[in-house]
Structures are given as structure tokens and as C-alpha cells.
Simulated scan of single mutants.
Amino acid sequence: MLGIIGGDIVTEENTRYDASHIQVLEAREVFRKRPGMYLGSTGERGLRHMVFEIADRAVNEVLVGRATSVDITLTPDGGVRVADDGPGVPIDEREGADGPGLEALLTHMQAGVGTGGRYDVTLGFCGVGPAVVNALSRRMTAEVRREGVRWIQEYARGVATTPLTEVGPATGSGSTFDFWPDADIFGAMEPSFEGLEERFRELAFLNQGLDISLTDLRRPDESRSVRLRFPGGTRDFVDFLDGHTAASAPMDTIALEREDSRMAGVMDVAFRWCSCPDERVQSFANSWPTDSGTHVLGFRDGLATAATAYARQHGLLTPTDPDIAADRISEGLTAVVSVKLDRPEFGGATHGVLNNLDVRDCVGQAVQEHLGRWLEEDPERSSAVIGHLALGARTD
């Protein structure tokens, strides 16, 4: 049987598709063939995600209490070092209660690293694990300090070049990964210190137990280092977002943290109004930045309902005046809205929109109740804030 397509003779033999046509690639080959698919780009953004993929495991070690800190260093020779003081990556699969063995961790794609639940943080673009970093690095060195023994293994472009070797006794415990991005893929680009600092700062604000140090030694005459640790959590985050405008705020930061079984998770919200007209609202779901979603809608619902009720009760709005709308409530508002859910539901591959329906009602009710109590307890400041919002609603 044959036919003609575009002038070419097509036979049954050359159109047949069977198992012999399927190309099976190892993880390293997949990563090197389509690096942008797993890092978002092969530019500076992709380099930052290389750091995040390696740091992901260390950050979660701190959050579950097995480690106390994470240290990231940009080295003078163009490499990156990520270290933690946890128990150390398991050496082989027989120790798998703590996770995959070292070589499996660095060579196998970790489908859905972590549980995805409220206690798990994902930093990387796709969360495929350290294997993508190993595959896209011209060299990687892994050091594990575990149960009193120090182990080292070397890799090149995802392939082990030395066996896992015991090199002597260990002082303390933990894991250290050094990697040098492959110039064949990334050229001469370097990860941005500012971009790394921004994301790690977010994580430290959203997870009060985190202690992250970021050091840049790439240029000895311009070395810099920051320690990111914020016991005040989202309250500190709001202060940071306000910056120099904080002094003009007519109110202190209002913060609430509440667990709600209806949404199978916890909410952590902090906000205040300033005298400036700008809005600064940032939202997160399971520590991942979101553009919008049911948590943000619920937050705005709660603010508008509480503010309108207070304004009507205290004569700041007449019976014929409209309610204070959600867009009006945002004037001068600085806020951080964070939820951590057992089963987050996102719209789109980039997780930019949270879709869990129960979250809107839960966050809205909690914010309405919390703000309502604050307004009654501090009438002087309440009148200043709500009076301004009510005046805007009457003149719309």
C-alpha cells in the first residue's frame, strides 16, 4: 500500500509506528536536550533555579527540624556551594528512610520532590531535584558528613567520575554540594545575587524557623553577605515592603495566623494601611509566589466587609452610601497573604493562581473577624483609617 504526500512516496513500511520508534533517554540526556523546560530558561533565570534546585532539599531539612541553617556561597571560580548541617544525605538506598541515596539523588529525576503538602517548600521551577543541576554542570562535588564519616564523590555533566569514597572522619554532620554550571549551556552568565537574595528572603519571612546565609565571593574587592532570618515572620515582611513609608503608617501592622480544617491548611496574614496611595500586596501558597487566587480574593472580601460594617456602625457611611469596595480598600494597603495547604490546587503550570474554593471563605471570615476586633479596640486609629476609605467610597 502506498500514497503520495508532497511529492514523496509514502509506504506502509515507513509510516508504521511501534516500540522501536520510541527513544528512551536517561535523565541527564533529557535535561541536557531540553534544559529550558526544567529551569525556565538557559539564561540568568535558569542559573538561579539551578541554585534553588540544590537548596530545596537543605531548606526542607531545616523546616522539618533536622538542620538549623543553610549556607549558599557564590565562589570566585564561578561555582556555587550549598551547605547544610543536617544529618547528611543517605549514602545508599539501604538507608532510604531519610530519602534516596546520594547517587540516586544526583542522577535520577525526582518526580514531585517532597509531598507538596503544607510543610514542604519547593524552590525550583519544576521541582525535579538536584539531578538537573548535576546534568547541567561541567563539574559537581558532593560531600556528605554522616554518622562520623566524611564521604566525597565527583561528577561531570551528570556522570559520576569517581566512586563514592570515604575520606576520613567527619566533624559534625551535613551535606555540601559544589557545582560549576556548564558554559556550553549557559555561556558566561552568572546568577544574580539580588535575585537569589529576593527569593531566599521571601522564604525566610514566610517560614520563621529558616536561617539562610547568602555570600558572594566572586569579586574579592566587592564581597558581600546577608543573613536571612526573621522571627517576626509576615509581620516583618510587611515592615520590609513598606520601607521608608512605614513611619507614615497611621496604624501598627495587624497579623493573624490560623488553622482551618475546612481548607486543610493554615493562613498567615499581615497588613496595614499607610497614608501613601500605593498598594503593595504579595501573596503565596505553600511559600510559592502567586499572582492571585482564592486566598487573595478572600483577604479582600474580609477587609471590605469589616471596614464597611465599622463605617456604617459609627456613622462614617450613611444608609444611602455604597459599601467600601474591594478596589477602594486597597488604597495605601501593604499586605502579605500566605496560605499553606495539604492539597493545593493551582491553575497553570507556573502555579501563579490558587484555585482551592474553600480557601476564599476561610480567609475572608478570619480576616473579617480579626480586623473587626482591632477596629473596636483602637477607635482613634480606626476612625482615621476607615474614615479615609469611607470618604473615598462616598466620592466615587
Rank of each mutant, 00 (worst) to 15 (best):
R139H: 08
V149F: 06
V167C: 07
M189D: 08
L123C: 04
N60C: 07
S41Y: 00
T107N: 09
T42S: 12
K340E: 14
R16F: 11
E257W: 08
Q110G: 06
M267I: 10
P76W: 09
I4S: 12
I152H: 01
A97E: 14
L317E: 09
A19Y: 05
S20H: 10
V238D: 07
S223C: 05
L341E: 11
S173Q: 13
R81N: 02
E331G: 05
G232F: 01
R45S: 14
V149C: 04
R118L: 12
G348A: 05
P163T: 14
E380I: 13
A104N: 11
Y119R: 14
R48S: 12
A19C: 00
G195D: 03
T308L: 08
A135M: 11
A55S: 13
I324C: 06
E61M: 07
A384Q: 12
G364P: 08
T162S: 15
P379F: 10
W151C: 11
G36S: 14
L341K: 07
I324S: 08
A55L: 03
R272H: 15
E190R: 15
L241C: 04
V167K: 09
G315K: 06
H351A: 10
D216F: 05
M267L: 15
H21Q: 08
D8T: 09
P163M: 04
I324N: 04
G168P: 02
P231V: 15
A249H: 05
D342L: 09
V363I: 15
G88P: 06
A170T: 07
R227E: 12
Q365T: 15
T171F: 07
A247W: 05
A204M: 07
Q153P: 08
E93A: 15
T171M: 11
E44M: 04
F31I: 11
A384R: 13
D278K: 06
R272F: 01
R360N: 03
Y155G: 02
G243R: 03
E166C: 12
G158A: 07
T350Y: 11
R394W: 02
L164Q: 12
V149R: 15
V10T: 12
I72H: 04
R394T: 14
D178Y: 14
G148R: 11
L217V: 00
G243N: 05
R66P: 00
Y38I: 08
D239Y: 03
G174V: 06
V51S: 03
V51T: 08
E103T: 10
L210Q: 08
P319F: 14
L228E: 03
F52V: 03
L341P: 06
F271P: 09
A97G: 03
H370A: 10
R157L: 00
G101W: 01
F271E: 00
A188W: 07
T253W: 02
E53V: 08
R343L: 09
V82Y: 03
I91H: 02
V64Q: 04
A204V: 02
T234G: 00
P220W: 08
F125Y: 15
G387F: 04
M267G: 14
L2F: 11
S383E: 14
E143N: 01
V269S: 05
R16A: 13
V121N: 07
Q110K: 12
E194M: 09
D18P: 02
F346W: 10
H351G: 00
